[in-house]
Simulated scan of single mutants.
Amino acid sequence: MAGGQDRIVWLNGSYLPAAEAKLSIFDRGFLFADGIYEVTAVLDGKLVDSDLHMARLERSARELGLRLPITTAAIEEIEHGLIERNGLQEGLVYLQLTRGAEERNFLFGEELEPTLLLLTQAKVLVDVAAARTGIAVKTLADLRWARRDIKSVSLLPQVLAKREAKAEGCDEAWMVEDGHVTEGASSTAYIITHDGKIVSPANSQRTLPGCTRQALVQLAEEGGLTLEQRRFTVEEAQAAAEAFITSASTFVMPVTRIDGKPIGDGKPGPVVTRLREIYVDHARASAR
């Protein structure tokens, strides 16, 4: 798998080496974070939950009035082209769409040509130690903007939250608003109650509609499990039987410590373990 400057990327209509990919200093994604992104998992050289990611991309673009320069079907073809050119078997495809480049001005021109970039990243997704040991989470005040349902490239609050969490030996940050967990800095947050219910905040402008979450909800229901869509407090999370996160880059990942307090017996529980197995099986079977 090509990496670093050797890998092949796709930028505004062309496949080219990463070292040759150039963006304008006037791009609004650089100057204003005026753009959106998607991250799609790759397993066995195939795209996981691609339909869900493309639907969310279209929604985010629509909410911000961004124009997709090509169809989502064409985007999928490009992603497959990058996977093949970079010999990627397991990892991620990153997509970023910005409004385009022009002289710096808060008011953007109506005829801008969007900037579209896609690249691959090699990453182990399935056989990871954290899935067997669980991860630690730190809770922090949610300082993000009010439209978290849009997958914006404006990620500074999440960057700072993850940095603070790492400084305290944690793997992820859970954002807290009005005493309730909204979501992870780069993941969806869940707890499992002692009577076996999966609890996670409902989709709203407070949270990003997770694609892995959407797939997992259906899989859980098919397996006889139910998701209770409501907010939960930090104290409720610390007292839960189990906890976990989901995202395209972690799939289903057990959380075993929150703010230093062990969840359950401090080890990945049976429900989360089973959910991860179910999702990985789904990912392998449905990837294309």
Rank of each mutant, 00 (worst) to 15 (best):
G169R: 01
G169L: 01
G169V: 02
G169A: 02
C170N: 13
D171Y: 07
D171G: 13
D171S: 12
D171E: 13
E172S: 10
E172G: 10
E172W: 10
E172N: 12
E172L: 10
E172C: 11
E172A: 12
A173S: 11
A173G: 08
A173T: 08
A173K: 07
A173M: 09
W174Y: 15
W174L: 14
M175P: 11
M175Y: 10
M175F: 14
V176S: 05
V176G: 05
V176I: 10
V176E: 09
V176P: 06
V176F: 09
E177L: 15
E177W: 14
D178P: 04
D178C: 11
D178K: 13
D178L: 07
G179D: 09
G179L: 08
G179P: 13
G179E: 11
H180C: 15
H180K: 15
H180I: 00
H180N: 15
H180W: 04
V181L: 07
V181C: 04
V181N: 04
V181G: 02
T182W: 07
T182M: 05
T182R: 08
E183G: 05
E183S: 08
G184C: 04
G184A: 06
A185T: 03
A185V: 01
A185H: 01
S186P: 00
S186K: 01
S186Q: 07
S187D: 03
S187N: 03
S187H: 02
T188L: 06
T188S: 15
A189W: 10
A189C: 11
A189T: 06
Y190G: 06
Y190F: 15
I191R: 01
I191N: 00
I191F: 01
I191W: 00
I192E: 03
I192C: 11
T193L: 04
T193C: 07
T193Y: 11
H194W: 12
H194A: 13
H194T: 08
D195I: 02
D195L: 02
D195C: 01
G196D: 15
K197Y: 12
K197R: 15
K197A: 15
K197T: 07
K197H: 14
I198Y: 01
I198W: 04
I198N: 05
I198K: 01
V199H: 06
S200Q: 04
S200V: 12
S200F: 03
S200E: 03
P201A: 01
P201K: 07
P201E: 07
A202I: 00
A202W: 00
A202T: 00
A202P: 14
A202Q: 12
N203C: 12
N203G: 05
S204A: 13
S204H: 05
S204P: 08
S204G: 14
S204R: 08
Q205A: 14
Q205S: 14
Q205W: 11
Q205Y: 12
R206F: 14
R206K: 15
T207M: 14
T207W: 00
T207R: 12
T207F: 04
P209E: 13
P209R: 13
P209G: 11
G210L: 06
G210R: 09
G210F: 10
C211L: 09
C211S: 12
T212R: 03
T212L: 08
T212K: 02
R213Q: 02
Q214S: 15
Q214I: 12
Q214W: 09
Q214V: 08
Q214Y: 08
A215G: 13
L216N: 01
V217Y: 11
V217H: 09
V217S: 04
V217E: 09
